[in-house]
């Protein structure tokens, strides 16, 4: 089953849900960057392996879709949610994550370069999308297994 938007992907705490909803937010709030990402991923067959999840990312040139795992990926990213959260919190950078084998990208040179370009476009869209901070906070909270509230019982404001 493919998922394009949050309406078709529940906030179930999974990486797949986070990714689909974040792409939906970028499409809504930074559409030019979503378009650039879609064009950059056109024809690519990307597999993302995060913790125990396997999801496929593909694009027809105008829409980026998150779908079920597929065996014919041309580039694969393997990491875990702790590493993703360390990256987004500034605890480590891409280089350190790669050198420490916490983030592994496998594929042909052209495919890996294209994937990195797409990753940067995704990040550029994410930092221009107001909703991403909350989506990331939800994802972080789901990994902590606690409610997203501070000790006053208030939504604390998302840090991104």
């Amino acid at each position: 089953m493919d998922a394009r938007s949050s309406s078709s992907s529940d906030a179930d705490g999974s990486f797949r849900s986070f990714l689909a909803r974040s792409l939906d937010a970028i499409a809504r709030e930074a559409p030019r960057l979503h378009g650039a990402l879609a064009r950059r991923l056109r024809g690519a067959r990307v597999r993302l392996c995060v913790d125990d999840e396997r999801v496929a990312v593909a694009s027809d040139g105008s829409v980026v879709r998150v779908g079920d795992d597929r065996a014919d990926a041309t580039v694969e990213l393997r990491t875990d949610s702790a590493t993703l959260l360390d990256l987004t919190s500034g605890a480590i950078g891409f280089l350190d994550a790669a050198l420490e084998d916490r983030m592994v990208v496998v594929g042909g040179v052209d495919e890996v370069v294209g994937f990195y370009d797409a990753l940067v476009l995704y990040l550029q869209g994410a930092v221009r999308s107001a909703s991403l901070a909350w989506l990331l906070d939800e994802f972080r909270t789901s990994r902590r297994g606690s409610a997203p509230q501070n000790e006053d019982g208030q939504w604390p404001g998302a840090s991104m």
């Binding site: 208030q154 939504w155 604390p156 404001g157 998302a158 840090s159």
Partner: peptide, 25 residues
């Protein structure tokens, strides 16, 4: 430190005054 973003429901800004609230801040 950090930068926090706040949902509209957690923000009060009083135009014409020097008074605002972003969540608990």
């Amino acid at each position: 430190g950090e930068v926090q973003s706040f949902a509209a429901r957690d923000v009060e800004i009083h135009g014409g005054e020097c008074a605002l609230r972003f969540g608990p801040s």
